[in-house]
Write a protein that binds this DNA or RNA. Structure first.
Lengths: 321, 321
DNA sequence: CTGAAAGCGCTTACAG
DNA sequence: CTGAAAGCGCTTACAG
């Protein structure tokens, strides 16, 4: 048996007699053999590694719209998925440079929560590396390699739920952010209220400092002339501030006002009261993104874009009155 | 000029004429040349990659004693530090297997928050890979390659601060966990109260569900016969529950009870009121750990263990009365 | 201080 | 279906 045959058997290339293939598999399993990653990479030009670029800066206070839970889960599951496919997942710092990235020899990259024309996407593209984004890059309408949550359907699901639980009017706390997910959720809210002839109450909230901004915004809403029956806080960062504002304003949740969040997180789960929220399923997004990227690299047909349906976690903050 | 000379110049090996070296550096910079990672790895046996093993499981609810902030920051800075040294940082899933890890060809690993005789350490050791832990593995007293926070000094700093702000007695909410950091903090608390003849009030709290357990424990403390003047909550997970319990028990913070946390986190920063907490400096721990590991790999002398001094962030929850 | 040559462990045309 | 041989791009003894 030649090395060629073994190589072919291991990589599903060429034609190998099924009996030979089986014998090889048996020996490989017994020895725990793994092809040397560098020899393979050197010859094939493929590294067997993909890069992950989170939108999290190194600063203590960062801008994230989604929650830390979300990113940590996303990263963990992305690593596990890659690992299962014998690929390495490299964590790439925000300050990744072209030369540096070239030195790291990744086969492709996953960019999480791109801004329009995100420079991280450009960086990978310049190196001719395939890119999958988690959420859409609105500055690149032609780029269809992304996995996203169904922002419009999600928003409608929350709003319908709030309406069903008796809210007449619903205000939305929207982060000042140009991420696609935010833009689309706000648009969905606008059409939903328009369809019902309800007042449009979008409050743009600064991400930094998110807690205080959300507190101020919510308090203003609840102590104003005609307080809304429900507040939909889009960013995970706003959950705590909104709950605190209701408390301070003397509004009981859910008796006086319903509260729901656009991203599930520990703040929502363990809130006082626990807050209804959309579970965006970072684990499914991570898996879909890694699989899309590996498909792109293998040349296997993949459906893109891929959408992950969120699940509404109904909690005490929107309990039936 | 031969390839040998260039290789020597690039890797600081052998003797190269300074003028030649400079000429090489100039050309390398101009061309943005980077040695092919696989060719180098194949020949040298070094991968130029280190693995990071966080204590975060893939489950939605995980056991972490420290905060998500802490781990995400740690991971980000570890990646950035590795990147600056032209090394890749691989995120390794909790379910990493020996064969799988061998296939990934890392040069060493960083294990965060090991349990005594942590299996992740064993895994790397079995592959003859150097290991650095963040916090100590109490089951391996001989292993000195770790970076840790000064648990005893930190605990005393918090307790002294609470005493200085007028607390007569201090209770400690300690997670039921076998991590070294927890064990040492509890021991430091014990000797601190013993030295002062104060009552020892260690309340073991389950990590899961952390918020509720901490709430229950704090409430019991505050509504019991002789409520303590201060509560020191060691785990980040307990911050929210403790604040809520004080609220529910009708205890004003800091007027009726002082509150401080052992790990700084968003819950403490944005709490109601903001809670005094120890900033464990994940960024410094990450940098120290990566540098220790790379030093180990290079054979350069490194001081080990390395200690990172925490900073007490004094906030409203312990304001002078 | 410099250079010619071997070889790391694979994959891949290519010939049989 | 199988095998002998080349070669991926470096680093490293070794000779000069």
């Amino acid at each position: 048996m030649s090395v060629t045959t073994v190589s072919h058997a291991l990589n599903d290339k060429g034609r190998v007699d099924p009996a030979t293939r089986e014998r090889i598999a048996e020996v490989v399993a017994r020895l725990g053999y793994r092809a040397n990653r560098h020899a393979r990479g050197l010859r094939s030009g493929r590294s067997g590694a993909v890069g992950l670029l989170l939108p999290v800066s190194v600063d203590a206070r960062n801008d994230e719209v989604l929650s830390l839970d979300f990113y940590l889960k996303l990263a963990s599951v992305a690593a596990a998925t890659a690992f299962d496919r014998e690929q390495a997942l490299l964590l790439l710092p925000p300050a990744t440079t072209k030369t540096g990235l070239r030195g790291l020899a990744v086969d492709g990259g996953i960019v999480v929560d791109p801004s329009p024309m995100d420079p991280r996407v450009t960086l990978l593209r310049d190196l001719d590396l395939p890119v999958v984004t988690v959420e859409r890059d609105l500055g690149r309408p032609g780029h269809r390699w992304y996995v996203a949550t169904e922002a419009e359907a999600n928003t409608r699901q929350v709003l319908d739920h709030l309406a069903e639980r008796g809210a007449r009017s619903v205000a939305m706390l929207a982060p000042r952010s140009d991420w696609g997910w935010v833009t689309q959720s706000v648009a969905a809210y606008r059409s939903w209220v328009a369809e019902r002839g309800l007042p449009e109450l979008v409050v743009p909230v600064a991400m930094r400092p998110g807690e205080q901004s959300a507190f101020d915004a919510t308090r203003r809403l609840l102590t104003g002339g005609s307080p809304p029956g429900a507040v939909f806080v889009l960013a995970a960062r706003f959950v705590r501030g909104a709950l605190r504002a209701a408390r301070v304003a003397g509004c009981r949740v859910p008796a006086d006002v319903l509260l729901a969040a656009g991203v599930d997180c520990a703040d929502a789960r363990d809130g006082d009261p626990p807050m209804t929220a959309l579970d965006l399923h970072p684990e499914l997004q991570a898996r879909a993104a890694v699989e899309m990227l590996l498909g792109l690299l293998d040349g296997t047909p993949v459906t893109a874009p891929a959408y992950v349906t969120a699940t509404l976690r109904v909690r005490a903050s929107t309990a039936a009155r």
